[in-house]
Design a protein around this nucleic acid. Structure first.
Length: 806
DNA sequence: GAGTTTGAAACT
DNA sequence: CAGTTTCAAACTC
């Protein structure tokens, strides 16, 4: 079940994207009248290419199910605000409308790459769509009537009928889209059987009773329509193939500041077992958690979200950098965005919870947008609570939304030498988060304590904003936060990008797996998503107290280590294995020669010289990462991965090129990874295959050596234990005299007596005028006699004691 | 520990 | 894409 606080929704960044499925990122025009969803052309972003994206695909959805998603989200907006419509996985559409404007959105009918731009003749408002494939059903958005019609026929009918709700019938279901106007009424994209009064958001009917559904979210103060998809023939077949998950959230209406709004996020859940044409659409009804004031009328907003669909960037710049290993969790930290255009209004609600991924969203201040300003103000006045919200997907799907820019809510940590501020995050290990509007877990955030999402095993410190942007952040009155826990183990964190002005124009030089997203409303704060492993370095900084259970050695310096999954090994595995320190001398640890760098780690306790692989040289490091990614987009991917079906579980992604080692030495990456060479290897004289006798011999030897090592280790352990025991038993303070050794009998008295004996011998020698040498001899002999007597007495005492005990 | 070998990465 | 150079790890002595 997904629960997202409305204030969070209203403050959500444009989106959080799954970079795996993210294609080109749409940009929104800052003029507020024209919003285009065309792919960004200024920020070519290296993408993870596991599932290559079509160039026309603007969605962030995973390709695997991108065609099966329908996502609809509508956000109410004030006058002149922007309405964004984004098709589930194919077409993010942003509409910036002005009052009384009529927008006709006619997406491309053919599934080919297409860009459609419709400009309203009266207002000049234009709608641009790009790459529309799924949304083949023409629909009309009528801002004049505060309505959006997703059905050509219905639109025409509506026009003929004058005003009134625009309804689309979809196999028995109605789809009503009502845009908001000056009245501040929300946009309602609604499914049928409930009353359809324009300008009033309503709770949709029981989603379980409806099969394919469109659900719309109305968010006060801002307008957003999440992907609205249709299929050929105006059939919502893609939605039919999905389950719906509903999340209902309560929110006070920021526009009216009186009537709370109930949000319902309907999340489609991918069902592998269902074909896209499957009509059965189980719905997971969401639980409603409201903050409604007693007596206040409620408004219901419903989000329809493809479960495995990524957030679309409807407006604003979004830069996605390919994730290394498709981390399943994403942590978003606001970053400054170079674009501080104030008129950027269109906002995409990051309702995305990709399959197997966790999204952690950090809301950033965007005071530049007039619309958002109003929204934020209202939100500040009405809602100050911090929410810990569990946005459960199927089983362990969660979304985390954390506004980091709120100063009272987040403890910012400044690392000396770093331009980042950090906030503590915690990787949740359970799904225990609840949708409490406020509670103990959130109070700490409000009191500027470390933002601890949960008491998970791993705590992470995430840079949230560059130090120079603190003032900007302070301008934001946001005081709410939503935190969601997750069961996922891998994370992506969002790191600040602004500290790197020289590379900021091209964000692709951020760590692999990084996703940058602009701040909602065009503020100068954006978001960058990077693999969480990169940020583990931060948790080891001396200024961040961590309770990490990852087993990282304590580090006292900035040059600590972050980890990415090593070749073929999971993060946990790599964590448990101590990494060898590098010895780089010429590469500055910024080339793939350096194992630390190649593994996405910071150098830590290495022997390298002139190392730049640390936070202090983040700029150079990011440049180097970009260079590597430019050269090879998969440079930071694990080299050892799963082979094709039918092949062995693990194999080298590129294969080795050994010539002289026979692939039986650690020079060979295959052999080093303890895997067999495969058909893609280009090695010469390979002996690293299953039947190779040399390999078997080596394996036996290796096994024997390992056994020896284990035995030696065990022997050492045993010996140490024995020595310990011996030391314990030979302690002078023994309770029993039976175990006392001779030296324990050298008491003060014995010592004095011995000295007297030695002095007596010296006197004798002196009286006899013995030479010095003879005197020394006599003294030494007497000393020997004394020792003998002491030993003899000790032995006798042991015997006596033993006899007494008997 | 110094020197050599090796192959991936980087470069041309 | 192929050949060469650079680099750091693996290896040998």
């Amino acid at each position: 079940m997904d629960v997202v606080s409305p204030e969070v929704n209203s403050l959500l960044p444009d989106e959080i994207m799954d970079t795996e499925a993210m294609g080109d990122l749409p940009h929104s025009q800052p003029d507020g009248t024209t919003v285009q969803s065309e792919p960004s052309d200024d920020t070519p972003v290296p993408m993870e290419t596991d599932t290559p994206m079509a160039s026309e695909n603007l969605s962030l959805c995973s390709n695997a199910i991108s065609t099966d998603h329908i996502q609809a989200l509508a956000t109410s907006m004030a006058s002149g605000s922007t309405l964004s419509i984004s098709s589930g996985s194919q077409l993010p559409i942003s509409i910036s409308s002005t009052p009384a404007s009529l927008l006709n959105l006619k997406p491309a009918m053919a599934p080919s790459i297409a860009t459609t731009k419709t400009t309203d003749s009266l207002t000049g408002t234009s709608i641009s769509t790009s790459g529309l494939q799924k949304l083949t059903a023409p629909f009309t958005i009528s801002a004049a009537n505060h309505q959006i019609i997703l059905n050509k026929v219905a639109s025409e009918a509506a026009k003929s009928a004058g005003t009134g709700p625009q309804v689309i019938k979809q196999e028995g279901q109605k789809l009503l889209v009502t845009a908001i106007g000056k009245s501040g009424q929300p946009i309602v994209l609604q499914l049928p059987h409930t009353c359809n009064k324009p300008g009033i958001s309503q709770t949709l009917g029981d989603p379980k009773s409806q099969a394919p559904q469109f659900k719309v979210v109305t968010i006060g103060g801002r307008s957003e329509l999440k992907p609205v998809m249709g299929s050929v023939g105006n059939h919502l077949t893609t939605l039919q193939a999905q389950q719906l998950k509903t999340v209902q959230i309560a929110k006070k209406n920021p526009t009216s500041s009186a009537a709370p709004i109930k949000f319902i996020i309907t999340k489609t859940v991918n069902s592998k077992g269902l074909s896209p044409q499957t009509s059965v659409t189980p719905v997971i009804a969401g639980r409603v958690l409201t903050q409604n004031s007693p007596g206040m009328p409620q408004r219901t907003i419903t989000l329809s979200e493809p479960h495995n669909t990524n957030i679309h960037s409807i407006t604003g710049k979004k830069i996605a950098i390919s994730p290394l290993k498709s981390p399943s969790k994403v942590t978003v930290v606001s970053v400054a965005s170079p674009n501080s255009n104030a008129s950027q209004k269109s906002v995409s609600l990051p309702v995305n919870v990709a399959l197997g991924q966790q999204i952690l969203t950090v809301q950033q201040s965007t005071s530049a947008s007039p619309v958002k300003m109003a929204t934020c103000q209202n939100t500040t006045q009405n809602i100050k609570s911090v929410q810990s919200v569990a946005v459960g997907g199927v089983g362990s799907q969660f979304k985390t939304i954390i506004p980091l820019s709120t100063q009272p809510n987040v403890q910012q940590i400044q690392v000396p030498g770093s331009r980042f501020h950090y906030v503590r995050l915690v990787t949740a290990t359970t799904t225990s988060s609840t949708g409490q509007p406020s509670g103990p877990s959130t109070s700490s955030i409000q009191t500027a304590k470390p933002m601890v999402v949960s008491t998970g095993a791993v705590r992470m410190s995430v840079p949230i904003v560059p130090a120079q942007t603190i003032k900007q952040m302070a301008q934001k009155p946001l005081t709410s936060a939503t935190v969601v826990t997750t069961t996922q183990t891998q994370q992506r964190l969002i790191m600040p990008a602004t500290p790197l002005p020289q590379i900021q124009p091209n964000f692709t030089n951020l760590p692999p797996g990084t996703v940058l997203a602009p701040a909602p409303g065009g503020g100068n704060m954006g978001y960058a998503v990077v693999p969480a492993q990169y940020v583990t370095q931060l948790q080891q900084t001396p200024f961040v107290t961590l309770a990490s259970s990852s087993g990282y050695p304590a580090s006292t310096g900035i040059q600590t280590q972050a980890r990415l999954p090593l070749n073929g090994l999971s993060t946990a595995e790599s964590t448990s294995r101590p990494r060898k320190p590098c010895n780089c001398t010429k590469s500055q640890c910024l080339k793939l020669y350096c194992d630390c760098f190649a593994n996405g780690e910071f150098c830590n306790n290495c022997n390298c010289n002139n190392c730049f692989n640390n936070l202090e040289h983040e700029t150079e490091r990011l440049k180097a990462i970009k260079t590597c990614l430019d050269r090879n987009p998969e440079a930071f991917k694990p080299k050892i991965g799963k082979g094709k079906e039918g092949e062995s579980d693990r194999r080298h992604s590129k294969g080795c090129n050994c010539k002289r080692s026979g692939c039986l030495k650690n020079y060979c990456e295959c052999y080093e990874a303890k895997i067999m060479c495969s058909s893609i290897c280009k090695c010469i004289g390979c002996k690293n295959f299953e039947e190779s006798p040399e390999r078997k011999t080596l394996m036996h030897l290796a096994d024997a050596a390992e056994v020896r090592v284990q035995q030696q280790t065990a022997a050492k352990t045993k010996l140490s234990s024995q020595i310990s025991d011996l030391l314990m038993r030979t302690t002078p303070v023994m309770s029993s005299g039976s175990g006392r050794l001779p030296f324990t009998f050298v008491t003060k008295e014995v010592l004095e007596a011995t000295c007297e004996c030695l002095l007596e011998q010296a006197k004798k020698a002196e009286q006899n005028h013995q030479p010095q040498v003879e005197a020394e001899r006599m003294i030494l002999e007497e000393f020997g006699h004394c020792l003998m007597r002491i030993i003899s007495s000790a032995g006798k005492a042991k015997v006596d004691c033993a006899s007494i005990n008997c």
